[in-house]
Amino acid sequence: MNLETLQRAMAAAVMMPLTADDAMAQTAPDGRAMEAVAGSFIAPNSRLTAFERLEIYNRQYWFRMLGALAEDFPALQAVVGARAFEALSVAYLTEHPSRSFTLRNLGSKLADWLAAHPERGGRRHGLAVDVARIEWAFVEAFDQEALTPLTLDEVAALSGDSRIGLQPHVQLMALEHPADDLVLGLHDRQKREASEAGVRGEAVPMEPMRLPRLRRRATWLAAHRVEMSVYYRRMEPEEYRTLSALRRGLTLGAALEAGFEGSKLAEGRRPKKVREWFATWAELGWLCRASSEEQPQRTGREDE
């Protein structure tokens, strides 16, 4: 067996989902006995069969992947429950194994994937999707680039034809629930429990808890970084749509038009509203020079 064939065969085996009792499956997806598959390239020793030796790597793979996802999505785990979270993680990772050299990107498609799989979100599927979006936005806002912001003079000189960029760390979300407070509360609780566990403590899922009932209410949110901390800021839909349009590369005039499309806000009150937005964006340093590399966010739903 050449190296390429061996690596493909071993990777397929290592990434095969475990059985309910965390063992390697006896049969490969193509129907072959895993004992024969393992025996075709792995040598046994005096204590372990080829199957058992391969199983060590199969188990390690899943423990590592599930641990990494749980670390990035603790609130989602709390919302759907530990067992359902593990099941959805296995299904997600089977469909979307890591395609990046870093585990940081492991959950990049989870929110969109969950949105397309209502059977995985349980009774509160919509909330679960929102929570997943917020948690992924946190990951992005935490370490995405912060470009030089526009100065007040540069902001003052903008016209309808100007194209401006939005800081890469600013993550825009249109949600079905006002789930930001819930996520913040769950993250704070997780931090407290980890801190109480001390330095030596292992990452353990949060204790089961009763979650507050959250009514469905359209919510527009930005996750962004100030200094080194991530914050969430709620927005009106007009502001959200305008920022999303700017990120898509529209001119300022076109972005404002898109922002107020279908808005019930009286025409006469719009200039004041826009001035308020710009004051806030300038204060937060959200605006920067447009870049030809500026792309729509990798995840997050920016279109309603």
Partner: peptide, 21 residues
């Protein structure tokens, strides 16, 4: 090794000790 065809296992998988490797 630990990745093949752009998919990553994020594990340190052993190599066969061959001349090809």
């Amino acid at each position: 090794w630990g990745s093949v065809d752009g998919t990553y296992t994020h594990d340190l998988l052993p190599l066969p000790y061959t001349w090809e490797a």
